[in-house]
Simulated assay, not measured.
Amino acid sequence: MAAAGVLFPDGQGRVLVVRLPYDRKHPVAIPGGGWEPADLSPRRTAVREIAEELGFTPRLGPLACIDWTMDDFRPPIAAHLYWAEPLTPGQVSAFTPDSAEVGGWAWLTPEQAGHALPPRLSRRVGACLRVPRSAGPLELEDSLPAGHTLDHLVAEPPVDYTRLAGVALTGGADRPIPENAGPPLDRATYIATRPRIRAKARTLFTDRDGRVLLVRLRPWDGPGGEEPYWVLPGGGIEADRELPRAAARREVREELGWECEPGRLLALDWLPGRDADPASRRDTAVLVYLFDGGTVTEEQSASAVLAEDELVELRFCGPEEAQRLLSPESWARTSAALAARHRPGGPAELVGGRAAERPERPQAR
């Protein structure tokens, strides 16, 4: 599944949280919610959710983090957190919350938020608040630092989870959560009705001349199956079984016979499904993690053993040849990843291979 939340900071280093009027177990959250198939991207999900929950259209800044979390009782969730421009007092006073979704809100310090938010969300938000924004977007797995995030943050012991204790709410604080409060749907029903995405983990390898390693898929039955089809090494992340880095490691081992530890996460590319983009041939959205595989030596290249049931050829390609062989989306993603190699910070946020758009300034609602 996929979800998106928004970090609204104020001038005092605090962050906005909301109270969920239907949940006694986890009553405090960050504004946001689940992706819907008509959303063109998680960024659009975040904007839509804030408009529905709080009654205004936020202006989002950069992606703060991507967090892939697993659980024994639900599918994995690819959780996106976005920074927003600070809200003015006038904007806050003009909140028109959906009473079924928001039962109050508060500004919490990082320490207060750490105690009030559920443990996974607490770690996710805490990481974004502690690390300089220039290091973002952060890469997290199960809300713990991964990849380049480990250069800025180490996993810390969990803090006491106090929920609403000590939190002073406004806008509905006088309405207690009923004793029998619970989400509108029971857990199993809710999970069963949520839309799913697919996810892939690919790896960018280059040789010492900077040429990109591409692999050609074995022809398959169906439209276009006899045409040469080239991709970067990698494939699907196995839902409920592995995290993205483990998937990248496994795919390289299975396809090329190499034991490689994925490097930096260079790009995070959201490919919309046909419900959001009628021109798309995908039945649902696909999220692509693109990791840096580094420079391949001549010895390593010679040791490659192709997966006979999947691949028929590998080739190192210069930019012009790679652009000709790859699909437009794949080349755009590869080009963005090559550029990301030469700058610090986290992955490029892409939609269909292109830089994710920033919403225009909000209009009065």
Rank of each mutant, 00 (worst) to 15 (best):
E238W: 13
L256Y: 03
I237G: 05
P233K: 03
G257I: 10
V231M: 14
Y229F: 14
G210H: 04
W270P: 00
P228V: 11
L256E: 03
E227N: 08
P223R: 10
L217D: 09
G222R: 08
P262W: 01
L268S: 00
A267V: 05
L266N: 05
A267C: 07
G273P: 12
V252M: 05
P228Q: 09
P262C: 06
P223Q: 08
V231N: 09
L256F: 00
L256N: 09
G210R: 07
V252R: 10
P233Q: 13
G257D: 13
L214D: 03
G234V: 06
W258E: 08
G210A: 07
P272G: 07
G236S: 15
E242K: 09
Y229L: 12
A267Q: 12
P219Y: 10
A247N: 11
L271N: 14
P233W: 03
G225H: 12
I237Y: 02
A247F: 03
R250W: 02
L268W: 05
G224I: 05
R245C: 06
D240L: 11
P223L: 00
R253E: 04
D221F: 13
A248K: 13
P262F: 02
Y229Q: 10
L268G: 08
G235L: 06
R218H: 10
L266Q: 04
A248F: 07
L268F: 01
R250E: 06
